[in-house]
Design a protein around this nucleic acid. Structure first.
Lengths: 285, 285
DNA sequence: AGCTCTTATGAATCATTGA
DNA sequence: GTCAATGATTCATAAGAGC
């Protein structure tokens, strides 16, 4: 069965309330940053950002499965020469709300926009905050293993003395599994720093993130048939990646332009309009 | 004239009060993290960290020149599966104290500690928080415009086939660091992500940071003859780098073992003991 | 010199055991 | 019960040794 896409036109603050409890496996989103995109989203002032976001995160907490994960892509902007602290405040307030702040990944943007300022360098990283509902959550680490460095080639030719010693100490009785863990190993677990280039092929949108970003987290935190939610769907990157990877997905988008474009790009066939006209639902075939 | 080193044995909370107002150009330090180094420093509990640090940061604000910069190396640890929030709280409280939080650099530790856990990857980055007293501060950007970082220097020597293959495969998207792009470039501005390895050749100490780290910030924020302060001198990395780079420096260290070793390694000749015996001052010739 | 290969180890984190 | 100590896990770097 093909993965379904549910696309909602409307405000996440309201639309999230229509989703059932404990129904989503992964929430991945890049909300409008404070005072960014003023022309389109109206711009949330930095000092009101936390107050604006908390009702949304409260609903997200409700709809997420206990085994699920919430990945929030965010970066505070510079206001009058200073980094705003609203992200810091948001983390603290979300913990008060019941979220567990499990980890902060760094997205290192390798080809960040070049530029020169008198007292500042290029900003080439963003936060990827991982929140969870419960300490026990699903994580499929093997899915995101990366090729090892060159050292592995030489390492595997002959195990060094250190390796043997460490192996002996942990095995205890005879030699067994541990050495075989190393032999024929060509992949390593990644760290909490992600090296991805920003997407430069999407010219219509200031794309929130490259496809590799949601792909990585979808691989890591969901399996096929699971449900992915993006409450700020934007150009629909999370949704299209979910579809490609056979995950069901739910997207909410405030702006009709983005919504309409997603209907086209995601291949969603019938758009069911509700009578009030402010909300639309669509499912792909 | 050779740069001077002033080394103080004692508690920063007290010893900083002996320094004059507006006298330091750069403060760079790596304080003991919460609940770390318990065996040596006693360990500050995570929930008391902010309270412990604020009196120190207040003195640092006083001694720093208006044109100076404070670089704080810190990273929160995991407590019961969650990241602690004391660094977030510290940033907020230091702003209330009068500091400007200008920037957050990322130190990407290329050779971070290995390990595998069911719900977490290796932690391979630390925060380098830049605080300022005033929006107008000295920044000598050209000084750190070194040829695209050390990694390129060594790679450029031999542009092997494996270099190209591996780098491209890691990036994944195909954009990334194609080294041949850099061949005809000799200078580039850095970004706010620093790629450095942790030092592993120092067998006596768990060195707080590699020499490249203070060196980079000293180049960036001071010129020759300026004064650098490290209120948690540790093994003295900041001080020895300052000396080598012809910057005056002041170090404060709580533990006699570290203090004594610094006296030796930094080549400080006379140690003047005060009568109470708890405090010592020394200047190099 | 300039290679290759060997070796030690780093602000880590979790599960288990023992007091 | 809580809390501290111990063991197991395992990647990338640089120094050093050898050719």
């Amino acid at each position: 069965m093909a993965a379904t896409i549910k696309l909602v036109l409307g405000d996440s603050t309201k639309e999230l309330k229509t989703l059932p409890d404990n129904s989503v496996d992964l929430i991945i989103t890049s909300p409008p940053y404070a005072d960014q995109r003023k022309s389109t989203y109206g711009g949330i002032a930095a000092d009101k950002y936390v107050k604006w976001f908390l009702p949304i995160s409260k609903e997200l907490l409700r709809v997420l499965k206990p085994t699920g994960t919430f990945v929030l892509n965010i970066k505070e902007k510079v206001v009058e020469g200073e980094r705003s602290t609203y992200v810091m405040e948001l983390i603290i307030e979300m913990r008060n709300q019941g979220w567990l702040w499990t980890e902060e990944f760094i997205w290192h943007k390798k080809n960040s926009y070049p530029g020169k300022w008198p007292n500042r360098f290029r900003d080439s990283w963003e936060r990827l905050l991982q929140f969870n509902k419960d300490k026990k959550f699903h994580m499929y680490q093997e899915e995101v293993m990366v090729p090892m460095g060159d050292w592995a080639k030489t390492r595997l030719k002959n195990l060094s003395k250190t390796d043997k010693i460490r192996d002996n100490s942990k095995v205890g009785s005879g030699f067994g599994k541990n050495i075989s863990n190393w032999v024929n190993r060509d992949k390593a677990y990644p760290s909490n720093v992600l090296h991805l280039a920003t997407e430069c092929n999407n010219k219509n949108h200031s794309a929130a993130f490259p496809e590799e970003l949601p792909e990585w987290f979808i691989k890591l935190f969901t399996k096929e048939g699971d449900t992915v939610l993006d409450p700020f769907a934007g150009s629909g990157t999370s949704l299209s990646v979910s579809k490609r990877m056979n995950r069901n997905s739910i997207g909410i988008e405030l702006l009709p332009e983005y919504y309409n474009e997603m209907v086209t790009t995601l291949g969603i066939s019938p758009t069911i309009k509700k009578k009030n006209g402010t909300k639309s639902l669509a499912k792909n075939h």
